[in-house]
Amino acid sequence: MIGGMSHAEFVALGLPPLVAALLGALACALPGNFLLLRRQALIGDAISHVALPGIVLAFLLTGTISTWPMMLGAGVAALAAAAMIEAVRRLGRLEPGAAMGVVFTTLFAVGVVALELSSASSVHIDVEHALYGNLESVVWFEAEGWGSLLDPEALAAAPAQIWRMAGALALMALCARLFWKELALSAFDAGFAASVGARPRLAGAALTAATAVAAVAAFEAVGSVIVIAMFICPPAAARLMTDRLDAQVAWSLVFAVASAFFGWLLAGWGPGWLGYQGSVSAAGMIATVAGLIMFAACAVGPKRRGVAHP
C-alpha cells in the first residue's frame, strides 16, 4: 500500500500526475533561467495567458476540442503575442514589463469574450480546466502495477500529455545544450555577442519560441498556474544560491523537481495528515511550494543581496 492506494492504483492514478508535473516543471524552469537573466521573466506569464484566446480561436475555427488544433492555436497566439510585445515596446516606447502587461491582458480579455461566443454553441470549453489545469485527470487506466512501466503495450497507452511533455523537455534540454554559449552571451552582453557573431537577436527569438513550446505543452498537461510559477520561481531562487550560470541552471532544476514532488505529495496526502478528508489541487499546491522555496532562498540563500561575499 502507498498512501492508502494499492500499488496498481498508485501506478495508474498517483504516479501519472507526478510524472506530468515533474516534466512540466523541468521544461519550464530550464528556459526560465535565460528569461530571468534577460529580464523577460514575465514573458512566460504573458504566453500562458495568451494561450486562452488561441485555444478558443482554434475551437471557433475547427469546431472541435481535439488536442492538436488547440495546441497549434495556443502556439500561434503565443508567437503573435511575442511579436506584439516587441512592437508595443518599440512603437509605444514602453519598458518591456509594461509592454507585456498591455499585450497579455488585452489578449486574455479577447479570449474571455471569444469564450462567450463559443459557449453559445453546443460544445462547452472548460475554462477552469484550461487555466488551472487538472493534474489529477492525467491518469493511466491501462496500468496494472509497477510491471506496466516496463510493458511496451501499456506504456503506449500512457497519457499522451506525458509524452508531449517529455518531448518538450527533451527539446528544451537539447536547445540549452547546443546554444548554451549563445544564450549566455546574448543575455549578458548583446553588443559583444553581435560582434562575435553569436546572433543575439536570433538567440532571443529562439528563446521566445522555446518558451512558447514549453508553455503550450505544459499548459495543456498541467495548467497555466504551474507554467507561470515554474518559469520564474525555480530560476529566481536558484540565482540566490550561486554566482555561476551552470550552477544556477542546475539549482533551478533541483528546485523544479522539489516543487513538483512536494506539491504533489502535499496536495494528495497533506489534508489527510491534518485530519481532513480528500485532497487539494496538485497544480495549486506545486505552485505554492515553488513560491515557498523562493521565499526560503530570499531568506537564507547564500548569494542574496546584502550578504558579504568571500
Binding site: A184, L185, F188, R244, Q248
Partner: peptide, 16 residues
C-alpha cells in the same frame, strides 16, 4: 549582477 565570474567573462572572448 549576471551569474558569472571574471574567468567566465574572459572566456567569452574565446567564443569563436
Amino acid at each position: 549582477e549576471f551569474p558569472a565570474r571574471a574567468v567566465d567573462v574572459a572566456m567569452m572572448g574565446l567564443y569563436r
